[in-house]
Design a protein around this nucleic acid. Structure first.
Lengths: 147, 147
DNA sequence: ATTGAGATTGAAAATAATTCTCAATATCAA
DNA sequence: TTGATATTGAGAATTATTTTCAATCTCAAT
């Protein structure tokens, strides 16, 4: 039950608890994105006593440590996933709501362009594309929006 | 008080109301991003009777018509702005929370790359970069995260 | 191993953001 | 002008998340 997280946590004067370990483990074993509720359900299978509040608290902590990232995939509640090895981005189908994760080497070019033009230092990139997946690709399309 | 919106709305069997017009007008006159509460405050200056529920309802409607876009700039509540002429994206400073809007021609390259590789049709692009602005650029940086 | 300071937890209440209910009102096609 | 019905305001309801606080657990120092 000793992990990289254990080191990082205790080095910060914090404490490694069973709850924190279980939550990170479940998150790492879960491919795709879970919202806090779904994560709580899975965590409970390992230990039924872990509360939803602890799930939220631990997610916030893991985010600070860079072990978890939160996404807002166009919805009103957050989705979380263990930090991936290689950066990747998301596409959401407006019709079937399917989420496709992808990598795109050209993103790095955008980062460089913006960092130079705006004189900023970029540490995080969230790219969310939406539209219609191959299966749903068809008629009812809307105008284009951007962020 | 006749507008493009009026045409679009009535053509859909819906009705153009004073409230809807005021909300869109305020949004268009407001540069930057307003959250629902801030928008409501400004709307009230035009007409104190307009309720927050109507602001939310109208925002949802305007989004459907592509006249407004919603962003989740790393916060738990949405921000809204009138749909811009040219697509643009956002950078948020992790320290001072300042939001910089920018355009980046290289984004189109990413869109093409992904559309081709994943066989999807892309209608919306949300790109949110974060890091440190020129002013805040300094020590305490974290690991890199991506979406 | 034991201890104790204080970090963490569960449970429930609190807050924040957004949506819904419903009776009253306003819009617009006829 | 009128009637069918879309829309509104007010507040209740819902959903997502955070906070409170007493009880419990962790870990560095015995």
């Amino acid at each position: 039950m000793e992990t990289d997280l254990h080191q990082a946590i205790t080095a910060s004067g914090l404490r490694m608890t069973r709850q924190r370990q279980v939550i990170l483990d479940v998150l790492r074993q879960s491919h795709g994105h879970l919202d806090a509720e779904a994560l709580h359900d899975r965590v409970r299978q390992q230990d039924p006593r872990i509360s939803l509040a602890t799930v939220y608290r631990t997610l916030a902590l893991l985010k600070e440590f860079g072990l978890v990232q939160e996404h807002r995939l166009g919805e009103e509640h957050g989705h979380f996933e263990a930090a991936p090895q290689a950066p990747h981005y998301h596409f959401t189908c407006l019709k079937c709501r399917k989420v496709i994760e992808f990598q795109a080497s050209s993103v790095q070019r955008v980062v460089r362009e913006v960092a130079a033009k705006e004189s900023v230092q970029i540490t995080d990139v969230h790219l969310l594309l939406s539209g219609y997946c191959a299966d749903c690709s068809r008629e009812g399309v809307e105008g284009n929006h951007e962020t």
